[in-house]
Design a protein around this nucleic acid. Structure first.
Length: 403
DNA sequence: AAAAAACCCAACCGCCTTTGG
DNA sequence: GCCAAAGGCGGTTGGGTTTTT
């Protein structure tokens, strides 16, 4: 009998590799509407040629509204280090202490930054297997760890007393849990700010939505690029227009608009210009699409991490899936006010070279038809097709999906 | 300016755990 | 208790980006 674990899906029939914006949108829209009761069934229901696992991962690590993006704060890094000392490579447990951060992200941060930062100190730490919690080590590492935890945070308003002693005292580990939790929450709450930024050297545009919301308790200076590290950032260039563009994309906008220089990898999308609203604690953006507006995205459940039961159960039976999938795309179109198709003129951009500067055409009555996207476009490298979605309020989502 | 090296991170893989019949 | 399916987790990797030579 062909034992061994059955693959979770037929690898030959699923798309792999980076997600494109159309796929992301489908996933977001589907989960917004129906939740994610069954990851394995979800791709088919949502019209995605992806493995269920891949969908889950994409959602959890990237698309969830409450995923916090951007660089880790010193507080978060300290928390990670502390927890790693206590737990080892229990990334998901560590992540659970850092709301908004994913295990994958924490793991990456650890492997790329924190481990290296700590490694010089480790020479005196008997080069222990770092996958093991420090609790298994009869530690004499207090001196070495001390230097790290004394990280200087010059502007930090609150006491940032390191936990060196606590960590040297295994008996206090448990009692630390609450403290750790509090701290991580503090760190997070100070992060829950709308990272609307303007790159001073990139944009001189005038905008009508220029609100910089800054948490007053967050005194640590943030480099501009730190606030941009968002998977799906949104640029607002007029009150009613939302612009989502892809990273490094040279897209021509209104004359006064200038693009941010391609930054380091910010995920499949990033921002060009003007105002950037990180997708992360991006309740403001979700709000834009929420509730009362006819272009509602009905995001509250997702924001709160709750899905109503009836919402989840709309689907579920095979056989109705195709119909349902079509129905939801129709609903989605209705909600978004998607009324048209790809503009003929835009279709032509299919054949433009990558990074070709495409002048967005401010025609709010034409938009992308999601139904048509299902099989064809989602499989394509989108090239430079600009996709326009428009809502009744002229909120325009512009996806220049060049990857 | 070009090439090489280092860095970074999203995504994948496979194993383990949980759940339900 | 057994088995299969699905979810979850941690390790690893591919490839894009940035830095260094």
């Amino acid at each position: 009998m062909g034992k061994g674990r059955a693959p979770c899906c037929d690898k030959t029939k699923v798309k792999r590799g980076p997600w494109n914006p159309a796929e992301d949108l489908k996933l977001i829209a589907f989960i917004q509407k129906y939740g994610h009761e069954n990851w394995r069934a979800l791709p088919k229901q949502a019209g995605l040629l992806r493995c269920g696992k891949s969908c889950r991962l994409r959602w959890i690590n990237y698309l969830r509204p409450d995923v916090k993006r951007g660089n880790f704060t010193p507080e978060e890094e300290e928390t990670i280090i502390r927890l790693h000392r206590a737990m080892g490579n229990k990334w998901s447990k560590i992540a659970s202490r850092l709301p908004g951060r994913t295990d994958n992200e924490i793991k990456n941060v650890w492997n790329t930054h924190l481990k290296k930062r700590l490694s010089p100190k480790k020479t005196s730490e008997s080069s222990t297997d770092e996958s093991k919690p420090e609790s298994t080590i009869t530690s004499t590492s207090s001196s070495s760890s001390q230097s790290f935890f004394s990280i200087e945070r010059p502007n930090s308003p609150k006491s940032t007393t390191p936990y060196t002693n606590e960590f040297c005292d295994q008996a206090e580990q448990l009692s630390m849990e609450d403290k750790i939790e509090q701290d991580s929450e503090k760190a997070v709450s100070s992060e829950l700010l709308i990272g609307m930024t303007e790159d001073p050297k990139e944009s001189s545009a005038s905008f009508s939505c220029e609100s910089n919301i800054v948490n007053s308790s967050q005194n640590v200076a943030q480099k501009p690029e730190e606030t941009l590290a968002s998977p799906l950032s949104v640029s607002i260039y007029t009150v009613e227009t939302i612009n989502i563009v892809n990273s490094g994309q040279k897209v021509a906008h209104k004359p006064e608009q200038q693009l941010a220089s391609p930054s380091s990898y910010l995920g499949p999308y990033d921002v060009g210009h003007i105002l950037e609203i990180p997708w992360e604690p991006d309740y403001e953006f979700w709000k834009l699409l929420d509730d009362d507006s006819p272009g509602s995205f009905q995001s509250k459940e997702v924001q709160l991490g709750e899905f109503s039961a009836n919402q989840n159960m709309i689907l579920g039976e095979e056989g109705v899936q195709d119909g349902e999938a079509r129905k939801w795309t129709n609903d989605f179109e209705n909600e978004f006010g998607v009324v048209g198709e790809i503009k003929e003129s835009n279709k032509d951009h299919n054949f433009l070279p990558k990074n070709y500067a495409v002048e967005p055409q401010m025609d709010h009555t034409k938009a992308f038809n999601f139904d048509d996207m299902t099989e064809a476009e989602s499989e394509l490298d989108f090239g430079s097709i600009p996709l326009w979605l428009s809502s009744p309020q002229n909120t325009t989502l512009y996806f220049n999906t060049d990857q």
